[in-house]
Amino acid sequence: MKFVLEVDISGMQGEGEAVAELGRALRYWGGNLRHYALEPGDGSEVYDSQYRQVGSWHIAASS
């Protein structure tokens, strides 16, 4: 299986905003993973600190 995380940081323009927002997303979703079985098809959207959807993660079968 593969854990796939995609976050669009192109709209994050401020000084260090991309680093801060990506770090926040990784901490939040890393801590939230315990609520998932981590089987192919599991996944969720990823939001920034302004609650805008900036990406998603999912579990995929290995190719």
Rank of each mutant, 00 (worst) to 15 (best):
K2Y: 05
V4M: 04
V4K: 05
V4R: 06
V4Q: 02
L5H: 01
E6F: 07
D8M: 00
I9P: 05
I9E: 09
G11K: 07
M12W: 02
M12I: 01
M12F: 00
Q13Y: 00
Q13H: 03
G14I: 00
G14W: 01
G16Q: 11
G16M: 07
E17G: 02
E17R: 06
A18G: 14
A18V: 06
A18M: 04
A18Y: 03
A20I: 04
A20M: 09
E21T: 07
E21M: 05
L22Y: 01
L22W: 00
L22G: 02
G23E: 03
G23D: 04
R24A: 12
R24S: 10
A25M: 09
L26C: 08
Y28T: 05
G30P: 15
G30H: 14
G30E: 06
N32C: 12
L33S: 08
L33G: 03
R34L: 06
H35D: 11
Y36R: 12
Y36G: 04
Y36D: 13
A37P: 03
A37H: 14
A37Q: 12
L38D: 08
E39D: 09
P40N: 04
P40K: 10
G41N: 13
D42M: 09
D42R: 12
G43R: 14
G43H: 14
S44K: 10
S44N: 15
S44Y: 15
S44P: 09
E45Y: 07
E45M: 10
E45Q: 11
V46G: 07
V46Q: 09
V46C: 13
Y47F: 15
Y47T: 09
Y47H: 02
S49T: 12
S49R: 11
Q50V: 02
Q50T: 07
Q50L: 01
Q50N: 12
Y51Q: 10
Y51L: 12
R52A: 14
R52I: 11
R52T: 10
Q53I: 07
Q53N: 08
V54D: 07
G55N: 08
G55R: 04
G55E: 10
S56W: 00
S56Q: 04
W57Y: 06
W57H: 04
A61D: 13
A61E: 15
S62G: 09
S63Y: 06
